[in-house]
Structures are given as structure tokens and as C-alpha cells.
Design a protein around this nucleic acid. Structure first.
Length: 294
DNA sequence: TGCCAGGGCGCCG
DNA sequence: CGGCGCCATGGC
């Protein structure tokens, strides 16, 4: 137990500070930032070895040096320890998670399917994003496609965020439903507004949700926001609040479960690894349907 | 050009 | 409860 999962060294290159994380397993920058969990990152090269974007109000770049080495460019030691280590969940043992996920399946067939999904998706790391950003982002995601989600979030940050950071609850309430609607958010404008207002007023405490161990209570709280149902709620809890037992089911996941587990699927068996398993299945389903059959 | 998108709400049986 | 139309928009 407590085995060392990575080591880190700091440096400076071209007047930019960086942290180089080495000896890490199951970390693909490309898969992690291209799998539809974070919407503010874009590849810097066609191969996707490097992604740049914004998180926690900072400009940051993640560079895949080799299979077991990732450089975080634009951070010193303080930000690495206080922000990026947690954001990337570097202390999660993904090799152990992968074993547990396969072992948790109830039949040989299910183990084979899950094993394929794990092989396909391994390298994805479930990011722990800012709670408010995750909540609003997944409200925007509903009945929407990933390119347009990104576009709306970019507009939101550019118009109402300070220096391009994700907007505060106060800024979004200040925008008003009309201001949000003007950014082409459509019927989601009122939902975004309601979420921001409930957080700003203190009717909903994001900190309380973060600290709560009662998953059902967290769900009830988030679902009291207009336009937040089981799916948006579970995504926010998984990607923004560190509730790794969350198992969001969207149209892709429905297809995956129908296709591979006609006998039924019990996310509860996966415990705290349900969220990772869900992301593998989601990625696997999109890969199968995305025309990359090679 | 239509169908679809990391859904949820309101209404109806 | 379960099904279904609708919501606003644009990617493909």
C-alpha cells in the first residue's frame, strides 16, 4: 500500500516554469483531454501529444513526453501541489482501478467486454475540475454536441469571465437570462441562470456537496436546480466534486449498455470505480461508432 | 437537408 | 411510474 505512483521535477524552459511528472502509468494526455469531460482544451499538434487550455483561471499546457512522462507547462511547485496534482488526480492508482473494474463484473462475458473497454480507454484520467465550472458545463451539455458545448463555454468565458477564466456565479447572475441567451445557449439560459443564482444566494453550497459523503443527498441538492436531472447531476458530481461512484448515463452509455450488457448492468458493483468504468465504456462506444475500426 | 447531440420538463395515460 | 413532444441551436 501507499506505493509511489509518480515522481516530479521542476524546471524552466524558454522563461516558462514546468513540472515534469514521470514514472506514471495510465496517463494519456490525448485521451484525457479529448474524451469529452473537459471543454476548454485544444490539441497543439495533429497527434494530440500536447493540449493547451484553461483551468482554475490559469493558462496551462500538458505535454506527453513519453508513455510514462507528462510535462505540465506553466506551473511552478506551488501550483503543482495545490492545483494540478489534485486536478489530474495523480494519487489515484489506475492500474489497481483497472483490475478492480474487470474483477467486479458478474459474468465471464461481462469481464471480456469490460476488459476490451478498459484496454481501449486506459490512459483516460477522470479530472477533478472546478465544481461550479463542471456544473455549468454539464448543464450546457444537455441535448448538445461536444463542439458546440465548447463554443458556448468559450463565449461564456470570453464575455463574462475575468481574463478568460470561467465566470463566477455573480458574473452569470449579472448577465441575466437575456445575456446568457444571447450567447446561443438556447433553452439552457434559464437553467444556467438558476444554477448561478442558487449558488450565489447560498441556497446551494458547493462546498457542502464537496464535503458530503451522502451521494443521494448531493444528487437531491443538484437536482433542485432547474434543468438539472440525473445525468447532469452525476456528471457534475463525477467531474467536479470527486464523487467517483457516479455513473452518468447519456445516449452513448445507453447504447453501450444495451449493446454489451443485455442481461443488465449494476454500477453499484463497481463502488468508487464506477465513474472510471463509465468513462471507459463511453470512450469505447464512441470509438466503436466513430469509424476507427482498425 | 434532415438527423442528432454527454437531457430535462411538463403533460398525459 | 413510463412514454412522448418540446425546448434552441448548429455540427455533421
Amino acid at each position: 500500500m501507499n506505493k509511489k505512483l509518480y515522481s516530479v521535477e521542476y524546471g524552466k524552459r524558454n522563461s516558462e516554469h514546468f513540472a515534469r511528472v514521470s514514472g506514471i502509468s495510465c496517463f494519456s494526455v490525448k485521451k484525457t483531454f479529448d474524451c469529452g469531460q473537459a471543454f476548454r482544451f485544444e490539441p497543439d499538434d495533429p497527434d494530440g501529444m500536447s493540449f493547451s487550455g484553461k483551468a482554475f483561471g490559469r493558462d496551462i499546457r500538458f505535454l506527453q513526453e513519453d508513455e510514462k512522462t507528462v510535462s505540465i507547462i506553466g506551473t511552478g511547485e506551488d501550483d503543482f501541489e495545490n492545483i494540478w496534482r489534485r486536478y489530474l488526480v495523480l494519487d489515484e492508482d489506475y492500474e489497481e482501478a483497472n483490475r478492480c473494474i474487470v474483477a467486479a463484473m458478474g459474468s465471464e462475458h461481462a469481464r471480456e467486454v469490460m476488459s476490451d473497454a478498459v484496454r481501449c480507454g486506459t490512459g483516460i484520467r477522470i479530472l477533478r475540475q472546478d465544481p461550479f465550472e463542471a456544473l455549468i458545463s454539464f448543464i450546457i451539455s444537455q441535448n448538445n454536441n461536444i463542439p458546440r458545448i465548447k463554443k458556448i463555454i468559450t463565449a461564456l468565458c470570453g464575455t463574462y469571465g475575468k481574463d478568460g477564466a470561467f465566470p463566477t456565479p455573480e458574473a452569470l447572475v449579472g448577465a441575466g437570462v437575456d445575456g446568457l441567451f444571447a450567447l446561443r445557449t438556447g433553452f439552457r439560459a434559464a437553467y444556467i441562470y438558476d444554477a448561478a443564482k442558487k449558488v450565489l444566494d447560498g441556497e446551494i453550497s458547493l462546498k457542502h456537496i464537496e464535503e458530503s459523503d451522502d451521494y443521494d443527498e448531493c444528487t437531491r441538492i443538484l437536482c433542485s436546480i432547474k434543468g438539472v436531472g440525473p445525468k447532469v447531476s452525476s456528471c457534475a458530481l463525477l467531474y467536479g466534486f470527486g464523487k467517483t461512484e457516479a455513473f452518468p448515463i447519456d445516449v452513448w452509455m445507453k447504447r453501450s449498455l444495451d449493446r454489451h450488457f443485455p442481461e443488465g448492468f449494476e454500477p453499484g458493483r463497481l463502488g468508487r470505480y464506477a465513474g472510471i468504468a463509465q468513462q471507459y465504456l463511453f470512450y469505447y462506444e464512441r470509438w466503436l461508432g466513430g469509424g476507427q475500426e482498425s
